[in-house]
Simulated scan of single mutants.
Amino acid sequence: MATTQTTTWTDADPHAFVAAVGHPVRRRDAETLLTLLGRITGLAPRMYGASIVGFGEYHYRYASGREGHAPAAGFSPRKAATVVYLNGGVLDDADLARLGPHTTGVGCLYLKDLAKVDLAVLEEILARSFAALTSGTGGAAS
Rank of each mutant, 00 (worst) to 15 (best):
M1C: 13
M1W: 14
T3K: 07
T3Q: 10
T4L: 12
Q5E: 09
T7N: 06
T10L: 11
T10W: 01
A12W: 01
D13H: 13
D13K: 15
D13M: 14
H15C: 12
H15E: 15
F17K: 14
V18F: 08
A19C: 15
A19W: 13
A20P: 12
V25F: 00
R26Y: 00
R27I: 11
R27D: 12
R28S: 12
R28C: 08
E31K: 11
L33A: 05
R39Q: 09
I40Q: 02
T41N: 08
L43A: 14
M47G: 04
Y48R: 06
S51I: 09
I52K: 07
G54K: 02
R61C: 09
A63G: 14
A63D: 15
G65F: 14
R66Q: 11
E67S: 13
G68A: 03
G68K: 02
H69A: 07
A70N: 06
P71W: 09
A73K: 01
F75Y: 06
F75Q: 04
K79G: 00
N87G: 15
G88D: 10
G89R: 13
G89T: 13
L91F: 10
D93S: 13
A94Q: 11
A94I: 09
D95P: 00
A97R: 12
G100A: 12
G100K: 11
T104C: 10
G107N: 13
G107R: 11
G107V: 07
Y110S: 01
Y110H: 05
L111C: 04
K112S: 08
K112D: 07
L114S: 04
K116P: 00
V117Y: 04
L119C: 01
V121E: 00
L122H: 03
E124K: 00
L126W: 04
A127L: 04
R128W: 01
S129I: 05
A132Y: 12
S135L: 08
G136I: 10
T137I: 10
G138F: 04
G138R: 08
G139P: 01
A140F: 09
A141E: 06
A141G: 02
S142I: 05
S142C: 04
